[in-house]
């Protein structure tokens, strides 16, 4: 058995106006179901240990994060090694319900952008409103970054976590480096 390898092997870069790191491998589960069904909510709570997030928001606790993806889709972030157990728990709790839980840990890449200019770097690449009063810790967006789809949230002040498809991990890394080039502070936020 070989060790799982993230798309860019955990590469980091700090030669610009923020720190950029590929993190992972990160456990990820796509979960689709009826949010209005109390049993679905209980099953999620029991398996992930988190309440349902509100629209365009995440719930965070310990090593698990629950992200709102759409009115019938969640993304669970958990330790890579926990995926199988969590999938099994979800599948058994949701037996008899119309729901879908599938491992997508390897389908994605995850990046972290950290520093006082993280917001500005993100705002160079996405049309989402990232003003401090509009995008706060715990909020979540599915949008685009330059030419690829991406989702992100603020794990804590000045620290964004970005999820994109694995195949464009190199593009995302190059993109973030470009947007963080030295001397490119906007000084707006």
């Amino acid at each position: 058995m070989s060790e799982p390898v993230s798309a860019l092997g955990g590469v980091t870069w700090a030669d610009g106006i923020a720190q950029i790191a590929e993190i992972g491998p990160q456990g990820m589960i796509t979960l689709r179901g009826d949010f209005d069904d109390p049993e679905f909510r209980v099953a999620v709570k029991n398996a992930v240990g988190l309440d349902m997030p509100g629209q365009r928001a995440v719930q965070m606790s310990g090593e698990n994060t629950l992200c709102w993806m759409s009115p019938d889709e969640l993304l669970v972030l958990c330790p890579y090694g926990d995926v199988a157990a969590m999938l099994a728990a979800l599948t058994s709790a949701l037996a008899g319900h119309h729901a879908l839980a599938v491992n997508v840990s390897d389908a994605r890449a995850v990046f972290r952008v950290t520093g006082p200019y993280a917001r500005e770097i993100m705002a160079k690449l996405t049309p989402a409103d990232l003003a401090p009063d509009a995008f706060k810790t715990g909020m979540f967006r599915r949008t685009r970054m330059a030419q690829v789809p991406a989702a992100f949230f603020l794990r804590e002040t000045d620290s964004f976590e970005i999820v994109c498809f694995r195949s464009v991990a190199q593009y995302m890394f190059d993109l973030l480096k470009t947007a963080a080039q030295p001397g490119s502070e906007v000084g707006y936020f």
Binding site: A146, V148, F165, R166, S167, V168, A169, Y171, D174, L175
Partner: peptide, 16 residues
């Protein structure tokens, strides 16, 4: 064009 030039002119999808 903005940042879209050189390595990030267009996303290139890569397999593992």
């Amino acid at each position: 064009a903005g940042e879209a030039r050189g390595a990030v002119f267009q996303p290139i999808r890569r397999t593992p």
